[in-house]
């Protein structure tokens, strides 16, 4: 975690790195990111050749494979514009682990340069765009699950709630043990399914106990896990990506 971070002035253009989960499963959330950024007067460039940041292989220990995939992303951002990532875990991968992955290689400088331009979406909206949101939605009790990578790897526990607190009709409730992991962890959910299931069950129960009517996350991995579990258990509570929620209520 960087103790002091100096943010740039709002740029004219940004790159969007959509992440593979949004690309495949939650593309509407990706479009909502575009809408939110464009409303701030920022042009969004989406490099068509982007695929995945490489994190699934990285955390599984397959670093040669992760490096090859990460290397393919490094060339997609030639201009000095910020790279917006609507995910704390992919953002954390690019900002923190790209430099480690390419240490002592010919791509080291490039990886470090790309890493320094990576911003998680809520971070960018708060600290660079300084957004002011006008809520047009009905009153609602909302909970947010901030992903562990946004919270700890990127140090962004505050930016999501800061955006939601601007929504005048939204009552932000905090679930018990809000900082605890939901149990996704990428391949962890598959390698240790029972432990992961116990964690997501507790997370779902905590969200319900907070009497949230809806919840948002800043990471589609957590969303797929928590919302998928609640659906599996036929619970009424549903979640969505924070970008979709923000756009829907303020458009």
């Amino acid at each position: 975690m960087t103790p002091v971070k100096l943010y740039p002035a709002k740029p004219e253009k940004v790159y969007l790195f959509g992440t593979c989960l949004i690309d495949l499963f939650y593309p509407e959330a990706g479009m909502d990111v575009v809408h939110l950024l464009e409303r701030e007067g920022v042009e969004v460039i989406y490099p068509d050749d982007q695929t995945c940041c490489g994190q699934p292989a990285y955390t599984s220990g397959y670093h040669d494979e992760a490096r090859a995939v990460a290397a393919a992303q490094l060339d997609l951002f030639p201009e000095p514009w910020p790279i917006i990532v609507p995910s704390g875990s992919c953002g954390g991968m690019m900002r923190t682990h790209y430099a480690q992955l390419f240490a002592d290689s010919e791509r080291q400088a490039q990886a470090e340069a790309v890493a320094s331009r990576v911003f998680e979406l809520t971070e960018f909206l708060v600290h660079v765009c300084h957004v002011r949101l006008v809520d047009r939605g009905e009153p609602q009790r909302l909970a947010m699950h901030t992903s562990c990578s946004a919270r700890r790897e990127m140090g962004l526990a505050e930016t999501g709630p800061q955006l939601l607190q601007q929504l005048s009709n939204v009552t932000l409730v905090e679930q018990a043990r809000a900082a605890e992991c939901c149990g996704f962890g990428g391949t962890f959910a598959v390698r240790h399914p029972e432990v992961s299931a116990a964690m997501v069950a507790d997370k779902g129960a905590a969200l319900e106990a907070a009497e949230a009517e809806h919840f948002v996350t800043s990471d589609c991995g957590c969303l797929m896990n928590i919302d998928g579990h609640l659906q599996h258990e036929r619970r009424a509570l549903r979640g969505e990506h924070i970008a979709s929620y923000l756009w829907r209520r303020t458009a």
Partner: peptide
Amino acid sequence: RDLPSASSLCGA
């Protein structure tokens, strides 16, 4: 063999 993988890497 199952210990290093038994973490979601949540960072706590």
